[in-house]
Amino acid sequence: MQNSFFIKKKENSNADAFNSGTKKSCETVSFEPKIIGFLCNWCSYAGADKAGTAQKPYPPNVSVIRVMCSGRIDPQFILDAFQKGADGVMVLACHPGDCHYKEGNYRAVQRYRLLLKLLKQFGIEAERCRFDYVSAGEGDRFVSVINETVKAVKKLGPLKR
């Protein structure tokens, strides 16, 4: 039952991305994007837990990195993720006015807007980088944000590097 994907591969992702990019038509069918989701501890991470307790299934493509607040998310983290093989990145925060630290989500959204301009320069589509708000109660919303993002990134195909 040892599948190859269980083995930590060092140089695979770039090659894969390159291949799938060139052989788009046949690869996109089985393309499973890698997406990093930065979630703030107080609302969106709790929202993800809520989806879990409700046992609402969603695709496993998004790997969550927990931070205390969306304000902690340095745009460098996002750039680094794209550089190291992510096909998409999500930043989920508390709704405006709800940030546990008052205004971290305002900083986060400001940084996100600036970053989008930069991503455009790098040729990374805006749809690959999503910013959204999910509250602790919004398990369903968390699931739909994940579904939408996975779908959008799948449609774009692997990020060519």
Partner: peptide
């Protein structure tokens, strides 16, 4: 309070 906004900035 450990929000980390300064570290990101």
């Amino acid at each position: 309070q450990g929000c980390g906004t300064c570290a990101a900035a």
